[in-house]
Simulated scan of single mutants.
Amino acid sequence: MKLEHKNRLNYIYIPQYWLLGITTGLVAIYGQLVWWSDDANLISSVLLFFGVIGYLVYQKRHSLQLTSSPLATLLGLLLLGLFLLWTHLPANVSLNPRFLPVLPLFLGGGLILIASGFKGLKQYLPELTILAVLGLPYLVLYYVINLSAITANFSAFLLWYTGFDVSHVGSFLILPEATVNVREGCSGAEGIAHLLGLGVLFLIMFPQSHGKKALLLVFSFLLGFVMNSLRVVLMIMLVAGGDGEAFYYWHEGDGSLIFSLISVTFLAGFCFWLLQEPKSEKPDSPSLS
């Protein structure tokens, strides 16, 4: 009995168990923030992305090199400190849907540096890629690319083609009955970023040739853009027809989720088609580099 008790105590001194415990606690803190954000898309994305990361790390757990350096450990602790500092900011900042998805990069980067140092970063390229696509594409689409004006332009073309008397100035769509401003929330940035993230997950789990990688990412972007533009067109038609209740349903109600579901279904079908295609090239290693 004493020997068995001593063996159990030995687990306390194994660094891997300390690392696992710290990771579990920090992920739980982040999960609580995501839950408080009350963002259904973000909650589902975090569950899916973190689940894939956990699976990938578990698969290679015996081959990981867990050797760090003082400088890497210090930088890792700094990143984790920034993560914890963010969680203590006021709710209007810490739960900001634009920046909340970026937090896992600080969390994951800090843990990786503490566990494996700078030399071990290469072991975690797929996991770091997943953490990056969870939040960075949305920031780029939101702040760098003016999607609102592009969406308004394309929606105006679709409306004109279907017979509507419409013009546009910047992000404004002008009809005889009303003027509609396509704001950032309706630009499609969130939907496009979500589909790009799902596409990257597929490429990591099922490596493809470089050509198929590019094809899938372009398809994900165009699919998200077109589906959002169709949603904008539908809402403008409802505004022109004076149907405020239907407009609310498609703008803020469950109708917006229907378009998201259709987009994910089309993407899943495209991914399935890629898997059925004959592989003329040798697939790359499970990364996007």
Rank of each mutant, 00 (worst) to 15 (best):
G120P: 02
Y124A: 09
L131V: 13
T179E: 11
N96Q: 14
I150D: 03
G108S: 14
Y143T: 11
D165G: 00
L139D: 00
L125T: 13
P137M: 01
Y161H: 13
I150W: 15
G109F: 06
A156C: 09
L141M: 14
R183T: 15
L95H: 14
L113E: 06
G108P: 00
L74I: 06
L103I: 14
L100K: 14
L75F: 08
W86P: 04
L89T: 09
A156P: 00
L89C: 09
G135I: 03
L128S: 07
F172E: 05
F83I: 03
T73Q: 06
P101I: 10
I174K: 10
H88C: 15
L136P: 08
L159R: 01
L80G: 09
P90Y: 12
S148A: 05
Y161F: 13
P70Q: 00
P70Y: 07
G108Q: 14
L84F: 15
F154C: 03
A156W: 02
V102G: 03
L74S: 14
I174W: 04
F118D: 06
A178G: 07
L71Q: 10
D165L: 14
I112S: 03
T129Y: 06
L111K: 05
L113A: 04
N92E: 13
S94Q: 14
Q123A: 12
I150P: 01
V133R: 04
P104F: 10
L131M: 05
S171M: 05
V140F: 00
L134W: 00
L95I: 12
V140R: 02
A132M: 11
V133F: 14
T87I: 11
L75P: 03
P137E: 02
G135S: 02
L105D: 04
A149W: 05
L80V: 06
S171D: 11
L105N: 13
S155M: 03
L100N: 14
F83C: 06
P126Q: 03
I114M: 13
L121G: 06
P137S: 05
L131R: 00
L175V: 00
F106H: 01
P70I: 08
N96C: 08
I114E: 10
V102Q: 09
W160H: 01
A91E: 15
G81D: 06
I145S: 07
V169P: 01
G170C: 10
A72P: 04
I130C: 02
W86V: 05
V144Y: 09
L79M: 12
P101Q: 11
L173M: 12
A115D: 07
A149V: 07
R183M: 15
S94P: 02
L89N: 09
L75G: 03
H168L: 01
L136H: 05
G170M: 07
F118P: 03
G109M: 00
